[in-house]
Design a protein around this nucleic acid. Structure first.
Lengths: 169, 169
DNA sequence: TATTGTTATACTCTATAACTATA
DNA sequence: TATAGTTATAGAGTATAACAATA
């Protein structure tokens, strides 16, 4: 301990800290502006459901629960309300009569589109204030980061197992 | 409409979309891992309070509410529980007997430190998988972005007014 | 009278546990 | 019997409205 770390290690740690700060900032800012969209009051929890269903169409309730880190009962209630809003639909699974296939409705997809457009607009305000050099670096850096997350966060990757089932491990 | 936008505009929009995606990813992932810290179950809402008090020490309850976009009554309840956990303290304001000064306790600060360390560790896993070039770009880009947010999101900036009061407009 | 903070009430989110239907 | 999904109950987050104390 106390030895000089390699420059790339220091830079990694500095990047992590910086990313952490930026994300905290946006966690506070975005939650403030959530209600401004479509006059449809979708909570942060419901929004996480929409994100997940957008990424993994047709998953069942149990799998969604694992993805969110929430209990099945909580997810069931969330889906009750999102279904009542017309954003999510429960369809019977073709492979097992005790499972569901959860999907965004076109209404739900439209909501996500609008929310993302609004958030991107907010981000643009900040990005427009950056220097062209920093802007270019941000894009390159985020691209690389996203690819790296996709590789190192297996929970988000759908992988076929021998029996053909979908696994999220 | 339909005209070719300048390259810098296209890059800005692309950056915004990319940032949006990355943040959604982390909103889902981080919420899953929140409970793993210190065996202290701090909710996402409570966490936003801790972030805000860490940034703006000694603000009153109303101001915190504006910062979070929450009603004063909600903030009061949040503080009840954070105070019971020993993470936040309410002190009488020296300038007005009807106001409070809200602060993190040392216990609260320690919790934030631990949470951030854990999250930075998670980010490092991804960052370590990036190329050195992308890593460097990420750091430069995030730095520029954070500065730009600080400039363009006045709600987060504390500014003295003529009468010496603290304003968050 | 206006402002700061706290309660009262009602609805949403969350978890654990009990329950129904299916495999 | 084990698993997928739904209720039952209880505690936490949220907002609106009514309230107390202070300015």
């Amino acid at each position: 301990m106390g030895v000089n770390p390699a420059p790339s290690h220091r830079r990694s740690r500095e990047s992590a800290r910086m990313a952490c700060e930026v994300i905290e900032l946006l966690e506070v800012l975005w939650e403030r502006g959530r209600d401004a969209v479509s006059s449809s009051p979708v909570s942060a929890s419901q929004l996480r459901v929409l994100y997940s269903l957008d990424r993994e169409e047709g998953i069942n309730l149990r799998t969604l629960g694992e993805l969110l880190g929430s209990a099945p009962s909580s997810v069931s209630r969330l889906c009750d309300r999102l279904q009542a809003l017309g954003f999510v639909e429960r369809a019977p699974s073709p492979v097992s009569r005790r499972e569901l296939e959860l999907r965004l409705t076109s209404h739900g997809k439209a909501y996500l589109l609008e929310l993302r457009a609004r958030r991107e607009e907010a981000l643009l305000t900040a990005i427009a204030a950056m220097t062209p050099t920093a802007r270019k670096a941000l894009l390159e850096g985020l691209k690389g980061f996203q690819e790296a997350v996709d590789e190192t966060a297996p929970i988000l990757r759908r992988g076929d197992t021998e029996d053909g089932a979908v696994r999220f491990a």
